[in-house]
Amino acid sequence: MKVYSKQTVQHVNASIEECWAFFSSPRNLQKITPKTMGFQITDFDEKNMYAGQIIQYKVSPLLGIKLPWVTEITIVKEGSYFIDEQRFGPYALWHHKHFFEPTENGVKMTDLVHYALPFGFLGRMMNTLVVKHKLKEIFEYREKKVNEIFNSK
Rank of each mutant, 00 (worst) to 15 (best):
M1I: 14
K2W: 13
Y4L: 10
S5W: 15
S5R: 15
T8H: 12
V9H: 14
V9R: 14
Q10R: 15
Q10L: 13
H11R: 14
H11W: 12
N13V: 11
A14D: 07
S15E: 11
S15H: 07
I16L: 06
E17L: 13
E17K: 12
E18I: 09
C19S: 07
F22A: 10
F23G: 01
S25N: 15
R27F: 12
L29F: 04
L29Y: 04
T33R: 04
K35D: 11
K35I: 07
M37W: 09
G38F: 03
T42G: 09
T42M: 08
D43Y: 08
D45S: 15
N48E: 15
Y50A: 12
A51I: 05
A51M: 06
Q53N: 13
Q53M: 12
Q53D: 09
I54Q: 10
I55K: 03
K58G: 05
P61M: 03
P61I: 00
P61A: 08
L62M: 13
I65W: 09
K66W: 11
V70A: 05
T71N: 07
E72N: 06
E72S: 03
T74Q: 02
V76Q: 03
K77A: 06
K77L: 05
K77I: 07
Y81L: 06
F82W: 04
R87S: 02
Y91V: 00
H96L: 09
H96V: 10
K97P: 05
K97A: 09
F99V: 11
E101H: 08
E101K: 12
E104G: 15
N105A: 15
G106M: 07
K108N: 12
M109F: 04
M109R: 00
M109G: 02
T110C: 09
D111R: 08
L112G: 08
V113F: 05
H114K: 11
Y115L: 01
A116P: 00
L117T: 00
L117I: 02
L117Q: 01
P118W: 00
P118A: 04
F119S: 02
G120W: 03
G120R: 00
F121E: 10
F121K: 07
R124V: 02
R124S: 02
M125R: 00
M126H: 01
V130Q: 01
V130K: 00
V131I: 07
K132H: 10
H133Q: 11
H133E: 12
K134R: 04
K134V: 02
L135P: 05
L135M: 12
L135N: 08
E143F: 14
E143M: 13
K145R: 13
N147R: 09
N147S: 12
N147D: 09
N151K: 03
K153T: 12
